[in-house]
Design a protein around this nucleic acid. Structure first.
Length: 595
RNA sequence: GGGGGCGUAGCUCAGUUUGGUUAGAGCGCCGGCCUGUCACGCCGGAGGCCGCGAGUUCGAGCCUCGUCGUCCCCGCCA
């Protein structure tokens, strides 16, 4: 009587490890049947588990019973089998498989779990609609690529924990059910049954709690924390996402940045890649000036160049007026990109239009540095020559110009720069490229709310030397904040926090939050700051984004086991769903029909 | 809230430009044959609310309007 699988017969090997070394051994494998190749006589099945694939053979001469039963095996049947590892016959090796020199001759097997015909083939060469994948995510996850992503996520998370543990950090959990605070993103709310009419909010980040942990003398805290923001989704934004959140007492900017570099290096190494250090630093002002964006992709050139001083007296009205108004006129040189067609240029014009640019002036540089452009006639030979020089133009280049408010010029040319690099594959094969962006503005003006709002968050410390400007020129005050940028994506950000009540109150005032509201919403923080709060600062890494980049994936959904669609739904569970009327009654809620 | 792409067999797609008989392909699936395959091969077969709803028309997968789903982007995301 054959022994029973699972209880008596234990798995001896995985499907990704058997080689010539095990030839002659009896082994027990468990996994999923992939392709069945039935030759009438011989039957081959590729058995797959999370480690790889092993070819198993059912031979009527070796084990007739097993061979007969093997006809039942279909795609994605969960199987256990016992058999003999055998070298494959000469010339039958499969060099695509690590296990390709051997095969397992099945003595007997058991179907642990039969499967319906899968809704899609679990083959890497089959591209399947994402909605179908999410509907059957548990099948999608069986694909080696998805397992690889989860494995990478696990390994990098462990590397982060290991590194921070080694640096004296404590992993502390903070509440999911907390209170809603003004500022920032829209909260997810959770109605309270015990306090009818009151609501918890899910945390947008553990920001306030980690500061309270510093007041609590924890000194070094971290958490791989889930965060919730009820805003519209993108390829790199989910309603719930994960941060590696950390905070340290008795530190300044350099301390946090240095610690972070060590942490990220450990993560990158766990992913089998390398991180060049030290990470270069740019100020916010430099980033905007050279790249137009606060998260610059510094893997390639195409930098923005100020040309306002060269075009103010040219005949071209658009530039002339911009200069007269004190607006910005900038250009970038698309090196060797004069091959762009008229249609390409129309597309690019529409592209910058989405960022508010009213047009896109371009100049193709021909033989003898001659201009070919709709606007060439408005520029004298001298103007053309000076612009050529400023932009280092040579034959085959194309110059792009933007003239508008600084916001529009920076954003449109900054995005144009990225779009050109995408079209011309300028970052192909480039190594991971990090940079820090520092000295962010503390505040930015919100024209809709007609008030100043915190660029980072309201707990960020202003640069001491800029403090005198807080009332007179709030926009000029710099923050003790820093962002970590990888390949043009913001993957982390943090700051030195305010640790005195006086300063925190001052900031609330600057934000137009009056004393009463500040006390009501943030009183607990203000109070905590009066009990010997240590200077402290920290940072949070966008873990999903970081892992997605390390995995070479275009969307963070690929590195999240059960992500949401762009509408925030889950095709697998059907969330969000309706709830029972009784549940609503208990909570004192009534749903109104929308008009 | 806005702009754009997609929606046809289980999956991936063609067919829509120029409306016209019974809507196709590959893979998968089912049945048969096959002892060295490995994305096996050969033969046969089943499988369709052309997302949904109105409209135009003698006639709609194809044109119009609406709607739903999904993806990308803008706004939004301290």
């Amino acid at each position: 009587m054959a022994k029973k699988f699972i209880t008596e017969l234990k798995r001896t090997h995985t499907c990704g490890e058997l080689t010539l070394a095990e030839v002659g051994q009896d082994v027990v494998l468990m996994g999923w049947g992939m392709r069945r190749r039935d030759h009438g006589g011989l039957i081959f099945v590729d058995l797959r588990d999370r480690t790889g694939i092993t070819q198993v053979v059912f031979n009527p001469q070796d084990a007739g019973g097993a061979h007969d039963e093997a006809h039942q095996i279909r795609s994605e049947y969960c199987l256990a089998l016992k058999g003999l590892v055998r070298r494959r016959p000469a010339g039958q090796d499969n060099d695509k498989l690590i296990t390709g020199q051997i095969e397992v001759v099945v003595e007997h097997f058991e179907i642990l779990g039969p499967s319906q015909t899968p809704p899609f083939m679990l083959e890497e060469w089959v591209e399947v609609n994402e909605n179908v994948r999410l509907r059957y995510r548990y099948l999608d996850l069986r694909r080696p690529e998805m397992y690889k992503n989860l494995l990478l996520r696990h390994q990098t998370a462990q590397a982060a924990r290991g590194h921070l543990n080694g640096q004296g950090f404590l992993e502390v959990e903070t509440p999911f059910l907390t209170r809603s605070t003004p500022e920032g993103a829209r909260d997810f709310l959770v109605p309270s049954r015990l306090s009818r009419g009151s609501f918890y909010a899910l945390p947008q980040s553990p920001q306030l709690f980690k500061q309270l942990l510093m007041v609590g003398g924890v000194e070094r805290y971290y958490q791989i924390a889930r965060c919730f923001r009820d805003e519209d989704l993108r390829a790199d934004r989910q309603p719930e996402f994960t941060q590696i959140d950390l905070e340290m007492s008795f530190v300044c900017e350099d301390d946090v940045m240095e610690l972070t570099e060590g942490l990220v290096a450990a993560i990158v190494e766990a992913a089998g890649q390398t991180m060049p250090r030290p990470v270069p630093r740019l100020t916010y002002a430099q980033a905007m000036e050279r790249f137009g964006l606060d998260a610059p992709d510094v893997r390639f050139g195409l930098e923005l160049v100020d040309v306002a001083d060269l075009v103010g007296d040219a005949e071209f009205k658009l530039f002339k007026e911009a200069v007269a108004k004190g607006n910005m006129v900038k250009a970038l040189n698309g090196k060797g990109m004069a091959v762009l067609s008229r249609k390409d240029l129309d597309d690019l014009t529409a592209f910058v239009g989405t960022y508010g640019a009213k047009g896109l002036a371009w100049v193709k540089i021909k033989e003898g540095l001659e201009w070919q452009s709709p606007i060439a006639k408005f520029f004298s030979a001298e103007h053309q020559q000076r612009l050529n020089e400023r932009l280092a133009a040579t034959e085959g280049d194309i110059l792009f110009f933007g003239a508008d408010t600084p916001k529009v010029v920076c954003e449109s040319l900054g995005r144009l720069r990225l779009e050109l690099s995408r079209r011309f594959e300028l970052t192909k094969g480039a190594p991971l490229t990090f940079c820090w962006v520092t000295h962010f503005p503390l505040l930015e003006y919100d024209p809709e709310a007609k008030r100043w709002v915190a660029m980072h968050h309201p707990f960020t410390s202003p640069s001491p030397e800029d403090l005198p400007l807080l009332e007179s020129e709030p926009g000029q005050v710099r923050a003790r904040a820093y962002d970590l940028v990888l390949n043009g994506s913001e993957i982390g950000g943090g700051s030195i926090r305010i640790h005195t009540q006086q300063m925190q109150q001052k900031l609330f005032e600057a934000l137009g939050i009056d004393a009463e509201e500040a006390t009501e919403k943030f009183g607990f923080l203000l109070e905590a700051l009066t009990f010997g709060a240590p200077p402290h600062g920290g940072l949070a890494l966008g873990f999903d984004r970081l892992v997605a980049i390390l995995a070479g994936q275009p969307s963070i959904r690929e590195v999240i086991a059960f992500p949401k669609t762009q509408k925030g739904t889950c095709p697998l569970t059907g969330a969000p769903g309706k709830v029972d009327q009784v549940q609503l009654l208990e909570l004192g809620l009534r749903v109104e029909k929308t008009s």
